[in-house]
Computed example of a mutant assay.
Amino acid sequence: MKYTYIRREVTLEELAASVIGSARSFAESCARGGPIPNGRQRGNYLPMLARFESGDVLDERDDACLEAVGRALMEEVEKIVPGYANIILHEDTSEDFFFNKELERCRNRLMQWQDFRMARSRLRSRVRARKLLGDM
Rank of each mutant, 00 (worst) to 15 (best):
M1K: 11
K2Y: 02
Y3T: 13
V10W: 04
T11Y: 02
L12F: 01
E14A: 13
E14W: 07
L15M: 10
L15V: 11
A17G: 12
A17T: 03
A17N: 07
I20F: 00
I20W: 01
A23D: 05
R24D: 01
C30V: 03
R32C: 04
G33I: 05
I36V: 14
G39E: 01
R40K: 11
G43R: 09
G43F: 11
L46E: 13
M48D: 02
A50T: 12
R51Y: 09
F52Y: 13
F52Q: 09
E53N: 11
S54G: 07
D59H: 07
E60Y: 05
E60R: 14
R61H: 13
R61W: 04
R61K: 15
R61T: 15
R61F: 05
D62F: 05
D62G: 04
D63S: 11
L66E: 13
E67S: 10
A68S: 09
V69T: 09
M74V: 01
E76N: 09
E78W: 00
K79T: 09
K79Y: 04
V81C: 03
P82E: 03
P82I: 00
P82D: 00
G83M: 06
A85H: 02
A85G: 09
I87M: 04
I88P: 00
I88L: 08
L89T: 04
D92Y: 03
T93E: 01
D96R: 07
F97V: 15
F98S: 08
N100S: 04
K101G: 08
E102P: 03
L103A: 06
E104M: 05
E104H: 02
C106S: 13
N108I: 07
L110G: 02
Q112A: 15
D115I: 12
D115F: 09
F116V: 01
F116N: 10
F116G: 08
R117K: 10
A119I: 05
R120P: 03
S121G: 05
S121I: 04
L123T: 05
L123I: 08
R124I: 04
R126M: 14
R128P: 09
R130A: 13
K131R: 14
L132P: 03
G134Y: 04
M136H: 13
